[in-house]
């Protein structure tokens, strides 16, 4: 019997459309606190749309419509102000997108927007966030340099630090290593392992091996349906559904 942590997200009969395109079909899923949930599936399977549903980012896209419910900590997310929800549920995107600012200002940016003005407090947040993202040692002597001077892998960890600076509870990673070399990928994965002690992580990835390495649980999406959801070890050694087996073995996708 698998022991589960407390439920962070509870998704009930979620359907979503972009215009007439039905992109998520009757999804029921629970996401547990302090775990990494890996979401895998071929292109157009709905995995990124699902991720963006969790902090209502889809609402920024025209033609988006959804039915069903997403509960966050027991509360319907439609009843939580979008900005408040996105502060609690941050996103790290596929491509590292540093702002045209210094390394330190990139990290402090979100905290400033959320009203923190005190310089010393901002410095503390910056250092703490960079440490948690395992970037502090590499940048502590050049915090005022442009963020663009960092390598791709460092830029991605900077984006993680920027997300952490607003003190979220959940971090959504949307293909965070797609443009990174294996060493940078390994550093981001190691960062996730440590972060899950304090945060809940949802990782969308096209790299099934990454899902197998880092996920506590794994969900397989196909054509907008959730085909299988289980502990990662089970999904990658003995999946229940033949479509999951075919996808993770590389037969399609």
């Amino acid at each position: 019997m698998v022991k589960n942590n407390p439920i962070k997200f509870s998704i009930k009969n979620l359907n979503a459309w972009f215009g007439s395109l039905h992109v998520l079909k009757a999804i029921n899923l629970e996401i547990y606190a302090n775990e990494i949930l890996s979401i895998i599936g071929p292109a157009n399977s709905g995995k990124s749309t699902f991720l963006r549903t969790l902090n209502r980012l889809n609402e920024l896209y025209p033609g988006f419509k959804m039915t069903g419910s997403v509960f966050y900590g027991g509360e319907d997310i439609q009843k939580i102000e979008a900005e408040v929800l996105r502060k609690r549920v941050g996103t790290v995107f596929a491509l590292p997108l540093p702002l045209p600012l210094s390394i330190a200002d990139n990290v402090a940016y979100g905290a400033k927007i959320h009203g923190i003005k005190d310089k010393k407090k901002l410095e503390e947040i910056t250092e703490e966030s960079l440490k948690k993202a395992f970037l502090w040692e590499e940048v502590k002597d050049r915090l005022n340099e442009s963020a663009f001077k960092l390598s791709g892998g460092q830029q991605q960890r900077l984006c993680i630090a920027r997300t952490l600076a607003v003190k979220p509870e959940v971090i959504l990673f949307d293909e965070p290593c797609s443009g990174l070399d294996p060493i940078s990928t390994a550093k981001v994965e190691e960062t996730m392992f440590v972060l899950k002690r304090e945060y809940t992580i949802v990782l969308v990835t096209n790299n099934v091996k990454q899902a197998a390495r880092v996920g506590d649980k794994t969900a397989f999406f196909l054509s907008g349906e959730l085909i299988e959801f289980d502990i990662t070890e089970k999904i990658f050694t003995a999946p229940s559904d033949q479509r999951t087996d075919g996808y993770i073995r590389g037969e399609f996708g």
Binding site: V208, K209, A212, F236, T237, A238, P239, T244, D245, I248, R249
Partner: peptide, 9 residues
């Protein structure tokens, strides 16, 4: 190949 699922078994 880092095989998985039925291939791994």
């Amino acid at each position: 190949y880092q095989p998985m699922a039925t291939d791994l078994r």
